[in-house]
Design a protein around this nucleic acid. Structure first.
Lengths: 232, 232
DNA sequence: GTATCCGTGATTGCATCCAATCTCAACAGG
DNA sequence: CCTGTTGAGATTGGATGCAATCACGGATAC
């Protein structure tokens, strides 16, 4: 490893080092610290967390199942890179699945929760910072789904969001998305539909919200052709 | 462990022991060898495969991400057991996602492939053996999706099938599903829709095919209350 | 100048060993 | 008779070390 990375976490012996490592790597991928195509070396990561390579390997396996990391036997691990086609596939899947999750969540959202959604939607329209926009966007949609008492579907949607996060960031940087009024209109439409308990309308709105993003991504294939050391 | 389990596989050193172990455990869960709720001991599995516990643990992590195994830190691993509500959730997800996968697959299925589908559907209607019925059913639907050149959606559907496989088996045993004419009618309807390149009809048919199964499962909650040593 | 073939260093995969934690049954107390 | 506690055994979690494999640069042939 090139430089002596400082230990990010103190030594804990709580019996789930690999889970901590997985969460930290996931976080680093989602916040852009590890961009798509970058190599993940076991020893470097292990050093960074004051752990051995065993829990790191387990974490990488988990992240591979999450679709965030691509492993090649005897060769190494890279942060997954999606092609445009794969990204569209994920978005199409989201178009089908997120309306369902919203439908399951809606009945359990009380007035307070919906008020908070409105606040988030408004703050999102006002911020100029891309990272904050992304964070609020994620938080908003997560909050719309928070009522769902699901075991598998919530995890699935989280995974789908995670897989496309780097491209959402690139696209937001490119498009200046917070300026696109339609995005915020859609968010407020979702809030209204939830307030009025109109599940049909809520479902249709998220669906077209996602579809619109997919089509915009498809209109900017250059996002997917950035050069960087990558796995095949 | 009670008896010395024979080595199932010869010693290979191809650099992916953990993948082999994961596949084998998955297989064992899907074919009912390890029923839901049964405990998976690392050492026993390691012995069975002539491997050490390290690759076994990696395999268990992967299977946990697949939803097939439930891990509890410092305690152990169990084959996942779904509640009726969770199972319905998975089925509802499948109702949304599989039509999409079929739509993506259909254009790439040639006449030969569709002929083979018809053969599978017919054989399924003729068999009396539950295990064979399950195998053919799985094979039929997998074949309808085989045209899809997807990276994530195919895996997702495979996962969803895997998570519900034990309950599909229990339900088939209970219901004598191969006698239910509607099942085979639906299969043939899918074949016909594919032959006529009618994507809308194909989508709607798989959707109701899955929905019907979900409702039948919901009508037999006793499937989910079998007593067995289980994780909380 | 280009393509092919090693050989060395770096990196991964796995087995073994030790520490930490949980399970479970026997036991003491109410 | 029931409940809470405790200690031995079983089981998991993680660190270290070694063998296998791969990446990559230099040398050689054409």
């Amino acid at each position: 490893m090139s430089e002596a990375a400082p230990r990010v976490a103190p030594i804990t012996r709580d019996g789930n080092t690999s889970a901590r490592v997985a969460d930290a790597i996931r976080e680093a991928i989602l916040d852009g610290t590890y961009p798509p195509g970058s190599r993940l070396r076991q020893e470097e990561i292990a050093g960074r967390f004051g752990a051995s390579r065993v829990p790191v390997r387990e974490a990488l396996k988990v992240l591979e199942a999450d679709g965030l990391v691509t492993l090649v036997a005897n060769t190494g691990a890279w942060v997954s890179r999606l092609t445009l086609a794969e990204c569209e596939e994920v978005y199409q899947t989201r178009e089908r699945v997120e309306p369902l999750l919203l439908r399951m969540s809606a009945p359990h959202l009380d007035t307070d929760a919906i008020d908070r959604l409105e606040v988030l939607a408004t703050r999102m329209a006002e911020t100029d910072d891309v990272e904050e926009f992304l964070r609020l966007d994620r938080e908003f949609h997560a909050a719309t789904y928070a009522g769902a008492e699901t075991l598998v579907l919530g995890d699935l949607v989280t995974r789908l969001w995670g897989a496309t996060q780097p491209y959402r960031r690139a696209y937001t940087l490119l498009i200046d998305a917070h300026r696109q009024r339609i995005v915020h209109d859609e968010h407020h439409m979702i809030v209204t539909a939830l307030r009025e308990n109109d599940l049909e309308s809520a479902e249709r709105t998220v669906e077209s919200h996602i579809r619109r993003t997919r089509r915009l991504l498809a209109a900017h294939p250059e996002i997917f052709t950035d050069a960087a050391p990558a796995a095949p």
